[in-house]
Amino acid sequence: MGEYDVRLAPGSQDGDAEEHLRSLLSWLQEDESLDRYVRGSYRSPAPRSAEHMGEGLDLLALVAGSALSTGSLVFSVLQWQASRRRAPTLILRRGAVEVHLPADRATDDEALRRIVSALGEDSRQSQEPGGDDGTA
């Protein structure tokens, strides 16, 4: 099972962060290629004080089932960005790795491979007997 965090990059919030994240989660849940393998919840990365009770949520925490590849999830997020008139730049995080997904840059196959690789989607290495899973 993979766990991912999605948030808007600083300076890319031309509107409400919570609205963008709700739209993204709705998109992911309606994507038939993800086949209901993604669950999401909204969070605020910093504890709220009494002074900031009115602020919205600005982090989307995603849990992807083991049958879902990182590539499918990233591709769907990029499709969501492409469908938006003024899509924000997103930061997709898995573990200690953060990848910025700018909305104004077209993503080709090689860029998608680099993003997926950075997020740790090398299932051949981690599943092969004696393979290097990066935990040295």
Rank of each mutant, 00 (worst) to 15 (best):
G95S: 10
E55D: 12
V116H: 01
S23V: 05
Q79G: 10
T89E: 06
G134T: 01
A46R: 15
P102D: 02
G134W: 04
L21G: 09
Q81I: 03
Y42D: 02
E30C: 14
A82Q: 09
V116Y: 00
A136P: 14
R86C: 09
R7F: 10
Y4K: 01
A9C: 12
R94Q: 05
E30D: 15
L73F: 03
L24N: 01
D122Q: 07
L119R: 00
D35R: 13
S117G: 14
L73T: 00
G54D: 13
L68N: 03
A9Y: 09
E19N: 13
D31F: 02
T135C: 12
Y42P: 02
A118N: 04
A106H: 11
D122E: 05
P102L: 07
A106F: 11
A82N: 06
R114M: 09
G71D: 05
D31K: 05
D58K: 06
Q13V: 09
T70G: 04
P47S: 12
I115W: 07
A67Y: 14
R94Y: 05
D122G: 03
R43I: 07
G65E: 04
A61S: 12
R84K: 04
D132G: 11
S44H: 15
L57Q: 14
R86F: 10
E18M: 09
A50G: 09
R85E: 08
G40R: 02
A82Y: 03
M53N: 10
V63N: 08
V38A: 02
A50C: 10
S66W: 08
R114Y: 09
A17K: 11
D35E: 13
R22P: 07
D108G: 10
R105M: 12
G56E: 05
D31A: 11
S66Y: 10
R43L: 15
R36P: 07
S117Y: 07
V38T: 11
L101G: 01
L8Y: 02
L78I: 03
L28D: 00
V99Q: 06
L25Y: 10
D58M: 06
D109H: 13
Y4G: 02
V99K: 04
V6T: 01
S83C: 04
R48H: 07
L21H: 06
E3K: 09
D122Y: 06
L24Q: 00
D104F: 11
V77P: 01
L60C: 00
D16M: 08
A87N: 00
V99C: 04
E19P: 08
P129G: 08
V74T: 01
Q29F: 10
A136C: 10
L21A: 11
V63Y: 06
L59C: 08
L24C: 00
A111M: 08
Q79P: 06
V77C: 00
